[in-house]
């Protein structure tokens, strides 16, 4: 079971929080801020779990997810989508495109950890 999480999130403070929570559990966290660069980074880094924010500079998280799902090598990659826009529309859209999990900000730390663990072991 791998221990590598790739996080795409543009808010530095949130990135720091997630990194702290996961690192304590023994995860290796790579953080990115830009949506445009995310796809290539994921392809090359081959993380065990991807955490993807919906609203990203450069490219929407939903776009990135769609690109990942379209590619055979990444179509089964566990992806946890995060959004701060509290609307059901984002969740429905993410599930349609193929998000493994979907969480709304703010989230509870334990839930975040549990979800990442579950996704990695699946």
């Amino acid at each position: 079971m791998g221990r590598h999480v790739l996080l795409v999130e543009d808010e530095p403070n949130i990135t720091e929080a997630i990194r702290f929570i996961l690192a304590r559990d023994g995860w290796e966290v790579t953080a990115l801020t830009d949506g445009a660069a995310a796809e290539a980074a994921i392809r090359s880094a081959r993380p065990d779990v991807v955490i993807l924010d919906v609203m990203l500079p450069g490219r929407s998280g939903l776009d990135v997810l769609a690109a990942l799902r379209a590619d055979e090598s990444t179509c089964n990659l566990p992806v946890l989508m995060l959004t701060a826009r509290g609307q059901g529309r984002d969740r429905a859209e993410a599930e349609r495109i193929g998000a493994s999990r979907f969480m709304t900000k703010p989230f509870s730390n334990s839930e975040m950890l549990a979800t990442v663990r579950e996704l990695a072991s699946a």
Partner: peptide, 18 residues
């Protein structure tokens, strides 16, 4: 508005839990 409010709240909640 939702996004702008939830973003700082996410950090606040995460760090307070920590």
């Amino acid at each position: 508005i939702s996004h702008e409010l939830r973003t700082p709240m996410t950090s606040i909640r995460a760090f307070s839990e920590i």
